[in-house]
Design a protein around this nucleic acid. Structure first.
Lengths: 223, 223
DNA sequence: ACCTGAACACCGTTCAAGT
DNA sequence: ACCTGAACACCGTTCAAGT
C-alpha cells in the first residue's frame, strides 16, 4: 500500500521528539528515526538538511513552550518564574539540554530567545550593568542546565534500569564510613529528593544572593 | 623496529587525555587513540575493558587533582575553596564533565569522592539536615557543572573556529533591537567575560543564599 | 517531487588467528 | 602474553538511479 502523506519536516520532528523521549539522544539516529516513519534513512534528507537541523528544530519547538512571566511582577519574582518554567519544560525534554551542551543544537528563533530577553530585562531593571547582567544570566543558566544535566545523568537518574541500580547499590554498600564519614551519612538522603523541588530550593538560594548583589538593593553586604 | 614497551593502562590514559584535550570527547575514539599509540584498535582491549573504562580512568585521574580545603576555614570559605578548585581542575579537562553528564564516566574512587565528602561535612557543620545537605550539594554541583558545560558549548566557546565565529557574527547582526531590546543591548558584553571570574561571582551569589538559608544563621529571612 | 540502493568513511567490540 | 585481521552491527551522509 502507498504511504498516505509524502512526509514533511513537521512529521519528522514529531517522530524525533518521541524517539528521543523514549531512547534518549543516543538512541536518536537517522536510521532509527526513518524506520519509525516507515521510510529509508535517506528519505529524510529531502525534508531536513541533516541531523543538526532536526535537533535544532526540536530545540526550537521545546523552547517555544517556555512561559513568559507577568511583566508586572517585581524583577526577582519574574526571574524566578522564568527559570522555573525553563526548568520544567526542559526536564520534560531532556534531549534538548543534552543537545545544547554537546553543541548539536542552538535555537536562535525569536520565540526561543524571548525568555532570555525577558530575563536580561529583569536584570537591567535590578540595576546591574552589562558585566553584572552577563554574570547573573550566566549564573541562572548554569544552575538551570546543571540541575537538568546532573539529574538526567548518574545518581539521580529517573529511568535507571535494574542492572544500573544494582551496580549502584553494590557501590553504596562498599562506601567506607571510616574514610568517607559525611558522604556515607548523607547517602540515604541523596537518592530521595524530588529534582524539581530541589531545583526550586537551589534557585531561591541563588536569587537571595542575586538580590543581595543587585545595585538597587539598600541592604548591601558591608553597609 | 619493535615497540619498546608493551603498552599498558597508564600509557593509554596518558594518550587519551592528550587526544581528548586536542579533539574533544567526540574526537576520542578507540581507533584514533590506538593510532596515536602506534597500534591497532583491538590491542587496547588487552589493557582496558572498554571505552567507558578509559573515560572512567581519565575522570579518576582528573578528580584526584582537586585540592582539599583547609579544614580550619569556616564552612562557607571551605565550600568556596573546594568549588573553585573543582571548577579550575575540570575547566582544564572539559572532557570530564562532558563524559560525566553523558553517563560515559562515573568516578567512584576514594580520591575522587573525597572532595564531595569534605563538602558534605561543611554542610552538616553549617547545621543543615539530610534534606538540606542534599539540596545544597545539588545546588553547588549544578552551578559548577552548568558553568563548565555552558562555557564549553555554544556562545562562550573558547576554541571556536573561524567559520563558527562568522556564523555567530551573522546571527548577532540579525538580532532585531525592536523585538529583543534587552538581549541586543547585552550582546556586546555577553562575549567578553572571563569564564572563571564569572563563575566566582556566581558562586559567591549562591554562597550568600546558602549562608542565609543555613540553620545556624542568626539573621534568617523573616526574623 | 520524492524515495531507494549502494557506497564511503567512520564507530565500539568480538573472536579466531598469529607471534 | 600481547597484537592483528577480519568481521559484525552500527553511525551520518552523498550520489546516482528509480518512480
Amino acid at each position: 500500500m502507498p504511504r498516505r502523506e509524502p512526509l514533511n519536516r513537521e512529521r519528522i520532528l514529531d517522530a524525533a521528539l518521541v524517539l528521543a523521549g523514549e531512547e534518549g539522544l543516543g538512541g536518536l539516529s537517522m536510521r532509527r528515526l526513518a524506520k519509525a516513519l516507515g521510510v529509508e534513512a535517506m528519505a529524510l534528507y529531502n525534508h531536513v538538511a541533516n541531523k543538526t537541523d532536526i535537533l535544532d528544530g526540536i530545540a526550537e519547538r521545546v523552547f517555544a513552550e517556555i512561559d513568559r512571566a507577568d511583566p508586572d511582577l517585581p524583577w526577582p519574582e519574574r526571574l524566578r518564574a522564568m527559570a522555573l518554567s525553563t526548568y520544567r519544560v526542559l526536564s520534560r525534554n531532556p534531549v534538548v539540554p543534552m543537545a545544547l551542551v554537546t553543541d548539536q543544537a542552538n535555537p536562535t528563533s525569536l520565540r526561543a530567545v524571548q525568555p532570555v530577553d525577558d530575563s536580561i530585562g529583569a536584570l537591567y531593571e535590578a540595576g546591574f550593568d552589562d558585566d553584572g547582567v552577563r554574570q547573573a544570566l550566566g549564573a541562572l543558566n548554569s544552575l538551570i542546565f546543571g540541575s537538568l544535566l546532573l539529574t538526567t545523568a548518574g545518581f539521580a537518574r529517573e529511568h535507571s534500569n535494574k542492572a544500573e541500580q544494582d551496580q549502584m547499590d553494590v557501590y553504596i554498600r562498599r562506601v567506607d564510613p571510616a574514610k568517607l564519614p559525611h558522604f556515607s551519612r548523607a547517602l540515604p538522603a541523596l537518592g530521595t529528593g524530588v529534582p524539581e523541588q530541589d531545583f526550586e530550593r537551589a534557585l531561591d538560594m541563588l536569587l537571595t544572593g542575586l538580590v543581595a548583589a543587585a545595585p538597587g538593593n539598600q541592604l548591601r553586604k558591608g553597609d
